[in-house]
Structures are given as structure tokens and as C-alpha cells.
Design a protein around this nucleic acid. Structure first.
Lengths: 207, 207
DNA sequence: CTTCCTATTGACCTTTGGGGCAGTGACATC
DNA sequence: GATGTCACTGCCCCAAAGGTCAATAGGAAG
């Protein structure tokens, strides 16, 4: 259950020292000399872990790596750890979702606290996403027609209206509707709407 | 459409200078010598505006004022403006939702950008809240019984089950259900569920 | 050519949802 | 005591949803 901490820093002796401290605390550690090394390694972001990232490193900077990871949809929380923190960079990093921004030298207490928070947050985010992903998977199994029916159902349209809008009959809509409920594995309209809402499919609704 | 900027700083000459700059940019300005002064004034957080806040001021500090305002449910965005920024304070302020964290002396460009962003964010948040508030108002007009029926409806229970759980008859549930739809001003179950979901009433649902 | 999936539809029946109309009973207010 | 709100309920009816059984048709895959 221990997390894997990805340490990105160009200072080899710093990496070694941090690795020792983190392993003592029970974490697995992977080290990288540059941001590109981490990108190349394509760390598994499904297992518990976080990134400990220096701001000023050769090649891609810390914040640049952060942008890349966000763009790539990574869900590994990032803790910045730098010798010299300037305010704009700090603000930007936190706004972009970094878990924390620490300055070297960092006490083990602060560092381990931050890592624990990062792992907790990732865990919460992942369990949240896990449920939604299940729904997305089901949603992907719908045929085009079923998907159209789904969209109209969760907007409160009745079968008669749906049939009219799709140029088909009420009986056909019922058949598709049945398939939708089956494939989405729900037993009531309420559940279906709830899922659609959580997936952000009803943002600008006109009932 | 001009916003009202609340400037909190213990330095009178700074307040005057900032006030002049902001008024030139077309903003209304209110100044306060201390955090307590602002709390006493209880600024109207329904009109467009934001708070420009020094971190180190006599009495309540900037971050402390931020906590108070958050606890009080204020929705005025806060921009910190300080002479000396230390990293932990910066991180904490941004995590707590501050719009920005600037250091004196600040260029007019940076300052006005931050204010514009703050106002834009407040506006978005407010229009979002506005819609939900409408629903909350309707929800508040429901009687206790109607509210119970509402809760069960949006969880996908059918009238028969609701009647059983409330120890009443199906016909009675129908009557309450009618009242719920009427008072919430919706025309379909889908709309009702959608609203419940947005109000966070379905977080841990068991269909 | 055969098989599978998808879309479509008809006929028929049952369960739910939604109301109209009417009436009872408790409780609070004026 | 009169008025009003809220909860509760029976009878009856219509509309909508959902399921069963059965069948047609086009397209993709083997």
C-alpha cells in the first residue's frame, strides 16, 4: 500500500539523499535526472504515488513538466521542491493544482506531510474518477441511436417526443430505451439522469 | 459595470496612491486601515467587486481575514498584495482560494489584470450560484412531508416503495409528488433529479 | 452464403405516473 | 367558532413506461 514517489532533480547527490529519506519512511522511490526522463518513463499513474519536482532543472522546467502532465491527463499529484521560490512561479504552480510548494532544505516532517496529503488527495480523486469511468465505459457501448435516445431521455423528453424528433415510432424508442437502461446498468430514470449530470452532459439544459 | 475594489492596508499613503490608480482605471474604491474595519463595514458581496489585501497589517492578518470571510460565506475574491512574500503564506493563501498573490511594488498592468480576473471569476461564480439559489428557494417552500417524498423520488424510488417507507398510501404519495413538481416548478422527473444532483443531494446514492 | 448486430415495428398486456373529485382529521390562527 | 394549511385517502380514468412474442431489413464479419 506504500506509494511510489517520483523524484525529479538534476542534483544526483540530492536525489540519493531524498531517496534514502523517503525509503526510510516506507515509500518506494523512482528518480529522474530530468523532466524528459520522467516523461519517457511514462510513470503508471494508476497506482498510488506522487511527483517531487524541482523547479529549475535542465531542459523542461518544473512548471513546464506540470503543464505537459496536465495536458496528458495525468493524475499524479505534484509537490514542488526548490531552492529558490519566486512568488509568481509559486502562485502559478498552486493554481495549476500542485499539491504543495516547498523550499530546500525541507524538514522531513513538512515533506512527509505533503506527500501524505498528496497521496490522500490522489486516492480521493481516483475513487471519484473510478465510478465515473465505469459509467463512461457503459456509455461507450451504446450504439449511435441508443446514444441519441439517451440524450433525449435524460433531458426529460417523453417517448412520444423522442420518436418525433428521431423520425421513428414510440415502440422503437421503447426498444432503444430498454437497451440504454440495460447497458448503463441502471434500474430507474433517476439513476440515469444522475449519471448524465455527473458526466457533465446536462450543463446547459432546456427542459 | 465598474467593480468596487476594497483596499485593506495600514499604510495611508499607500491606500491613497492605490485608490488613485484604481479610480483612473475606472473602478470604485473603498479603503480600510485594518481587517476589522472591513469586517465592520460588512461590504456588499452581491455587487461586482474584490478585495485587495495586505498580508501584514495590525490586528487581524490578511490570511486571518481571508479565513473569516470564507467562514462567513463571502464570495468576494481576494487579491493579496504584500511587501514581503514568504512561500508557505503564499501557498496557503492560493490554496484557500485567493485570486492572486502580488508583491509590492506592483505594476499597474499586473494589478489590473489580477482585478479583472477576480471580477470575471466572481461573476461566473455568482451566475452559477444564482441558478442554484432559485432552486434552494423553491426547496425551502416544501413541507416536511413533501421534502421526504422529494428525497425518495430523486433516488429512483417508485410511488409504491415511497408509500411503504413513509407508512402511507400510494395515492397520498401521488398528491405530495404533485405538490413537489408544482413547487419546484419542473415538468419532468429528469429535471427534478438534475436539480437534486446539482444541489449535492445525491452524493452517496444507492439506487 | 450464413451469422450476428443494429434498427425498426406491430400487437397486446401490466405496471406506474399523474390527476379530477370529494371527503376526513389534526392543528394553528384570528 | 370560522378559516386555513397540511396530511391522508378512496374511486375512477387516462397517459406513459416497460415487457413479451414475433418479424422485417440492411450491413459487417466469417
Amino acid at each position: 500500500m506504500s506509494g511510489l514517489v517520483h523524484v525529479v532533480d538534476d542534483d544526483a547527490s540530492f536525489r540519493t539523499a531524498i531517496e534514502r529519506r523517503l525509503k526510510l519512511a516506507g515509500y518506494d522511490v523512482a528518480t529522474y535526472a530530468s523532466a524528459q526522463d520522467l516523461l519517457d518513463a511514462a510513470p503508471d499513474d494508476t497506482r498510488p504515488g506522487c511527483i517531487l519536482l524541482d523547479v529549475r532543472i535542465p531542459g523542461l522546467s518544473g512548471p513546464e513538466l506540470q503543464s505537459r502532465l496536465i495536458a496528458a491527463g495525468s493524475n499524479l499529484p505534484i509537490i514542488f521542491l526548490t531552492g529558490h521560490a519566486d512568488t509568481p512561479t509559486t502562485v502559478q504552480a498552486i493554481k495549476a493544482g500542485a499539491e504543495d510548494f516547498l523550499t530546500k532544505p525541507v524538514s522531513s516532517e513538512l515533506l512527509l506531510d505533503a506527500i501524505a496529503r498528496a497521496l490522500a488527495r490522489q486516492d480521493a480523486a481516483r475513487s471519484q474518477r473510478g465510478r465515473l469511468d465505469g459509467f463512461r465505459v457503459h456509455l461507450a457501448t451504446l450504439t449511435q441511436r441508443e446514444r441519441q435516445v439517451f440524450d433525449l431521455i435524460v433531458r426529460g423528453k417523453i417517448n412520444k417526443q423522442i420518436a418525433y424528433e428521431l423520425g421513428t415510432t414510440e415502440r422503437t424508442v421503447k426498444a432503444h430505451r430498454h437497451q440504454v437502461m440495460e447497458k448503463m446498468q441502471v434500474h430507474s430514470l433517476a439513476e440515469l439522469v444522475s449519471i448524465a449530470e455527473r458526466l457533465g452532459m446536462l450543463d446547459s439544459n432546456g427542459g
